[in-house]
Amino acid sequence: MAPYDIIDPSFRSFVLPNAAIETLGTGFRWLEGPVWFADHDCLVFSDIPNDRVLRWSETGGVSVFRSPCGFENGHARDREGRLISCSHRNRCVTRTEWDGRITVLASHYQGRRLNAPNDVVVKSDGSIWFTDPLYGINTDYEGGRQVSEQRPAVYRLDPARAELEVVAGDFEGPNGLCFSPDERVLYIVETGQQFAADPVRHIRRAVLTENGTRLGATMVFHEVVPGGADGLRCDEDGNVWTSAADGVHCLNPQGALLGKIRTNTPVANLAFGGRQRSRLFLCAGQTLLGVYVNRRGAVRP
């Protein structure tokens, strides 16, 4: 039986007591960046320290999608279904074309190299939003130590015009990203400085302005305890499902904690997928987990 913590009574209808947490794969090093390919009925995700992108399907299990991969972390799909990826080692955001070619979309800002793009989301207008902290160039474990040339920031890329701009520059360690279902709000995880004794850790919320191309002032939405947040996703009702040190936490759109799915191991990232987008795939350290819930992942306009 899946271990749930019901904090708000509403969460009781979000989960399924007879739906166990299933182990879908294990023996990895550190999993991240899950994205669901409904047209191929598979999950694509990263095993960062092993420098490979993997694929999981119900019928085929785990296989290698790309290796080496430049120590890729976050992934998303663009409006044409192509894979958008964040590379630590190569310090860039790329697009995998349908014929397998890789196109570099962003590698520099104002003439200087990006740090280590971490997470990425694609808006319905085709714009690509990504975070660029220092984590991937701080150690040799997740990409290789290199010198930073930029302050950590959140970027917006207009691929049609090849224009890259900073939309938020007041983060110490911008990490996971997620749009609300109506794309009026962007949630951004702040995980702080990697080796700080007491890093700043919370989820911020920013309302989009100027026809959805800019961010208004960001405000603290929720502080995940224990361990802080990393990756996060919205369901179709606007609830935020976020990773945590003890599993997955579910927050309502006002930032109140509704309940938890306890995994007893840190979860780095998650994605909705499977039939009706009602299965949560969890990147839990060295293990890929899956659990069915009674909510569906958001499909944006």
Rank of each mutant, 00 (worst) to 15 (best):
D5N: 10
I6G: 00
F14Y: 12
T23N: 08
F28C: 11
F37S: 08
L43K: 00
L43N: 01
R52Y: 05
L54V: 04
T59H: 12
F65A: 14
G70V: 14
E72N: 08
G74A: 11
A76L: 03
A76W: 00
G81T: 07
C86P: 04
H88W: 11
C92H: 07
V93S: 08
V93Y: 03
T94G: 13
E97Y: 02
T103A: 06
A106Q: 06
H108G: 06
G111T: 03
D125S: 14
S127K: 04
S127R: 01
P133E: 04
E142P: 04
G143L: 12
E149A: 15
P159T: 09
G169M: 03
P174T: 12
G176I: 05
G176F: 04
Y187N: 08
E190H: 08
A197V: 05
V200N: 06
H202T: 02
R204C: 07
R205C: 11
V207D: 07
M219K: 02
E223D: 14
V225Y: 03
A229P: 10
R233K: 11
D235G: 09
E236G: 11
N239Y: 12
H249S: 13
T265E: 15
G274A: 07
L289S: 00
Y292W: 09
N294A: 15
G297L: 11
V299Q: 15
